[in-house]
Design a protein around this nucleic acid. Sequence first.
DNA 1: TATGAATGAGGGTTCATTCAT
DNA 2: AATGAATGAACCCTCATTCAT
Lengths: 214, 214, 214, 214
Amino acid sequence: MSATPIRPSPDASDTPRQEASERRRRSILDAARACFGESGFAGATIGRIADRAGVSNGLLYRFFRNKEHLFEVVLEEVIRDWVREMVPRDANQSATDALEGMFRRSVEFCRAHPLLPALLRDDPTLQLARVGSASRDRVQPHRDLVAGILSRGVAAGELRAELDVAAPADVLCQLQSDYSGRAYRRDPAFPDDPAIIDAVVALMRNALPASSAS
Amino acid sequence: MSATPIRPSPDASDTPRQEASERRRRSILDAARACFGESGFAGATIGRIADRAGVSNGLLYRFFRNKEHLFEVVLEEVIRDWVREMVPRDANQSATDALEGMFRRSVEFCRAHPLLPALLRDDPTLQLARVGSASRDRVQPHRDLVAGILSRGVAAGELRAELDVAAPADVLCQLQSDYSGRAYRRDPAFPDDPAIIDAVVALMRNALPASSAS
Amino acid sequence: MSATPIRPSPDASDTPRQEASERRRRSILDAARACFGESGFAGATIGRIADRAGVSNGLLYRFFRNKEHLFEVVLEEVIRDWVREMVPRDANQSATDALEGMFRRSVEFCRAHPLLPALLRDDPTLQLARVGSASRDRVQPHRDLVAGILSRGVAAGELRAELDVAAPADVLCQLQSDYSGRAYRRDPAFPDDPAIIDAVVALMRNALPASSAS
Amino acid sequence: MSATPIRPSPDASDTPRQEASERRRRSILDAARACFGESGFAGATIGRIADRAGVSNGLLYRFFRNKEHLFEVVLEEVIRDWVREMVPRDANQSATDALEGMFRRSVEFCRAHPLLPALLRDDPTLQLARVGSASRDRVQPHRDLVAGILSRGVAAGELRAELDVAAPADVLCQLQSDYSGRAYRRDPAFPDDPAIIDAVVALMRNALPASSAS
DNA sequence: TATGAATGAGGGTTCATTCAT
DNA sequence: AATGAATGAACCCTCATTCAT
């Protein structure tokens, strides 16, 4: 180990020195998010991240043990931000409205943070096996959110009550992840088309509600 | 001749020599499927693929122009096999039965050839913009299959007629890909659970049919 | 910045760091001169050059884009030094004296910098068609020098006036290059013998002057 | 060593089998001459030589120990052919006419056999140090030819008698080599221009004869 | 005899990481 | 604290050489 261990993210940036330091840490993380998002783990290079952050490559090793460590921190952050973004804003919405809102906000979030969809897809270029720990619970918060909404909807008689909510929540989360990622893929074979987003919403709305007739 | 550029896959393996050669080509392709599936394009290395195939690294360059060419061939092969597997067996089925059958066969296929989903998921914008041509149409056959079934169902009055079929076909294909891939991911966060497969089927069956009342 | 493409040779080496860096650049160039001189472009290896310079192979790529770039710079440098050395010192000399002086200085230069002739001899059509630009004008300055002297001699009535000076200048330059290179070849079949140098001088002195009788 | 040592060039091709074999050996040598001439020793590849000869790469190793051995044989042959070509045709010519004829024939020979000039120039891409033995005497026959002509000319009172002939012979040979090689270099900086050939001839004719006045 | 499939050492190059400044 | 020069392992790829057929 080095004589100067990794500097943690300070809880409070007291001195101006610490502030400047924290600002640099942030810019490195932002640059890393962009680079990993564009090029995957293997494709991104420390040099490019440092350039993009406007610092020297050596500085990265003062904040992060190595490339993998930096990657782990980036992943944790982006998941955290994503989940935070998806939390329903309005407690009075119907379940389906809440799901639709969550879905659309997720899509928007991924447009701005392209690393997330790759992560959710377990993109091989990310080499997620290397980080392991972080990936364990990276989607559970999402499912919990969705499952909570479904439960509320079932309790309110708004949604079908047949099944347990876990499996449908999984499916809905999967769809949200998938179509959130389209914006990022830029692959004409996987278009990021409002009409398709609407089709997903329609499918959800068709599939979930208790049959209106009953 | 000596500096044979690339040896093609012989249509008929006449001599034992050609047979052995074709066997080696196969083992390279299989190893490549595994390595690309596990590590993505950038993460996989020629050396590891050769090791896994039990051949020298140089041999790869007799069959494939370079790493990208090898990847293209792997991609084409696995897509072709997959689509072939999904083609509906029975022309007399209802549309929803056909979709369910296709879905379940796709899942089974991926259980036996676990590398497809990893390749499908491998984001082409990352390292593979160059492959281009191959990726263009790698999922279109799948969508065409699904769209054909939907159209038949609409024509037969079995399915809702509101929308055009393209968008729902996209969504259904996406779901098929996703859940076909679970077997491979072996990630507890994305379980390969019969109950969830059933939930997907249920969602499809709920969302698609013309309302029974009508 | 981090991913600095190529570090240029600094005009003034201010800091000790820059000085040390420049010293390394020099040692790489010197090693490259030696290796290219001994083995030609294709035969020389980056690894051997780095070893000889006492640096790691990676360092070469901080100073030079690639092997070809390194070769170009070596070529330019050595040509520049050589031409600089040959410029006539004394404007009052007769043309033949000036040519003889230039010739003998060129020979001496090559004795001290024995790698020039090897580089000059390195056939550009073989591996170096790509270098192109640099090789275009690598000998023209030499010919211009010689042609200038011949013109002066013709104007002064010292030399035959029959021909244009371009062709004889070419021949004289060729001879200067050849015999300048002998010191380096160390091939007993091509001796570096003062008697032969004198023979060249004698041949020039015989061939060029206006016939004394006329 | 191999169980089947190198097959020598048979003195007499008795059987049809031996004839065919000898024909193949020849075609390999011809292809090698062309390839080494175009690309130097390091740049030429066994594969390309075999292709050009219309045989498999493995066959080369039945006739030649390895790449270096093939190269040595090629060099010996080309030198032998060159000297054979330069031998004066007409014993009654004047010395200067004989030299001019030899010079012009040498130039023509090199146009057809481009390896020679590279060899004469000791082109670094040829890596002549590797073969050694052959290069020892590769130019002596040429000098002997020229020196013989000069001696005859001196004896006949046609040429200046001051010097011994060795040194001028060296210079003339050098010039012959140089300008023979121009055709091959295809470098605009070293033009293969009849006017320059004529200039060389003129220089020889000016420099060598006994002053006509005397 | 002749082939060409197969090998693997070694080439040029990149880049994560270290460390003197 | 911050830099960026320097390292060297590991990448992709080429090609001289061998050997089963």
